[in-house]
Design a protein around this nucleic acid. Structure first.
Lengths: 189, 189, 189, 189
DNA sequence: GATGAATGAGCGTTCATTCAT
DNA sequence: AATGAATGAACGCTCATTCAT
């Protein structure tokens, strides 16, 4: 699977040949099919494995603090840092995972939904506690945050000379938080 | 080209057959090649035509007002409404345009850059005028806004029962603007 | 199709490569698929074309005489001579057409049924006219004759130094006719 | 081997997977190769085992009587009944054994030759004794009889609702014998 | 300009067989 | 003897593109 991430990142999913994946993994062509149903299943498995692990960690990060603002910060940081640490995986996640409509709809979007729900819950919780504005729909806020982070990562992946992502967390969060906070919270922020 | 949008939207770029496009356009297979270099050029041409038209309109929208906040509002609204009015085109823009790395990098991202520059200029102008915060990098703000709108559109395209997009403009703008504004502006907002 | 008969006869259906067929026909690989659905359809088409033509001629041969014994003679002769004149086709008919159960049952046997019916009708007519015995079921007699001819052809196809088939018609017919004839006919035969 | 007969009969030789045979025999994939050289050898072994046993019994049947007509009757009956009692085996014999030219020529036809020789010897003996006609070549008569029985069996195997084969022996024999017998014998028959 | 018959390169996957354990 | 994970050769078919008409 590591070999597949490498080959998919280097050549792109469609240009990648199963033979290349096999060679990269130092196994015979057929061996791949003992563990994966086919090329698409290989891609789906990469998603599953890493997305689940990421979601798990993100949920734990969020649970480790009480402040919804801090929860958001940690989740976004986790998102950016996870993929910054593995550029090949980032490539696969930001580009290769979006290839066919069917795949996007059935597989990739399932994981995105889980992630969006996590963000949405944090926002809704903040709204319930009076920390965040109530007039912004939580699902839209979640989607906006995800979209912003996703776009940041895509441009990072596509850029020839990528800049570090960690320093982006603060300004990005600041952008969203200052907007999400209730008036009275602003003095404190 | 209209036929191509239709077929690409219905079947997906890779599943779409040039023959289907030809049939849909009621011409012979070879005729397409009199006007387009090939399948990819067909996709690129769709992008070119609509992206340029959209950018043109968005720039005019922005130029029609002086207030940077209002500029952002009009551009975002133009973006959402343009694609809401043509779901097949939206499909192609949000999904099919992102298929191969090469295409994404060379073609699609070129247009995105132009669009990002428009947003960035508005943000920078706002910052220069003291309407927007100066501590948020304009390019990052532009990317965040584009990412949020893009994600909104993607989920709209993928959703089975899409909700109208126009009502999303206000809350989305509010989310970003309240965060982007300088402290002293907030009283007024 | 002639090229396919050649290649199938020389290499066998399974060992035959579509590329070989294409080369033999001096067309590109893909061209075959403009006229045939696939490899199996190519085989089926060979059968259809020749079996129908043979049946047509056999029926005409039979209709050209009134004597059931003579009808049988002409049909059997037509059968043997048709394939003796085209050893490659004979090969395909006797060997390659029997490859998969599904094919045998659905395609090849359909034509055999038509042929058996022709033989059976002749036998039944002879029985009705009192020329042939009535105590031999016509379908069984038809199958026995077909089986005998078929076996003769198979061994001819498989033999390294095949002997002419035409001289076999008389003794074979004699073998069957003497048995099929009513007692009283025998004096004359 | 029993497992192989079952799987070959159910799926066909080519569609049969060695794994299925192994599973059906409740052994591991590799175990088959301890006893058979490969898939084709497995098929050949099935043929060997049953064909030899059949030939043995057929020869004994023939030797048990003196009358060439009775010899033929017993051999044909043995042939039909042997396979009628084991439909899966019959399937393999009538269909699956004829798949590749090489196999047919080298393996299957060897046994057929032995069988033809048995029939031929009976016919020749009958001719020598004056029981059968001398003007019918014994090898052709043998082939005709074999072909008729073979065709009977093939149609029985392919038929969805097979009729019993035993009652076919008498009419079939009658068909051949009446034709084979010398004039003077006919009064007695 | 328009046609559409012909092209032919390109590849995921299967499965009989092997062999280290 | 038995296992079963690993092997890797082998191939039918698709479809974007071309070009003679």
């Amino acid at each position: 699977m590591r070999a597949a991430v490498k080959v998919f990142a280097e050549r792109g999913y469609f240009a990648a040949r199963m033979r290349e994946v096999a060679e990269s993994a130092r196994v015979a062509d057929g061996t791949i099919y003992l563990y994966f149903k086919g090329k698409e299943d290989l891609l789906a498995s990469i998603l599953e494995e890493h997305a689940d692990a990421f979601l798990e960690r993100a949920r734990r990060d969020a649970a480790a603090t009480d402040d919804p603002r801090e929860k958001l910060r940690r989740v976004v940081e986790r998102h950016l840092v996870s993929l910054e640490n593995d550029r090949q995986l980032a490539h696969v996640f930001q580009i290769e995972l979006r290839h066919t409509r069917r795949f996007l709809r059935r597989v990739a979007r399932g994981k995105v939904s889980d992630y969006l729900r996590l963000l949405q819950d944090i926002v809704a919780e903040g709204a319930a506690r009076g920390v965040f504005r109530r007039d912004i729909p939580a699902d839209m806020a979640a989607r906006a945050i995800f979209g912003a982070v996703d776009e940041l990562l895509t441009s990072w992946v596509l850029s020839a000379r990528p800049t570090p992502l960690a320093p982006r967390v603060e300004p990005l969060l600041s952008l969203f938080l200052e907007g999400l906070e209730e008036r009275e919270q602003r003095g404190r922020a």
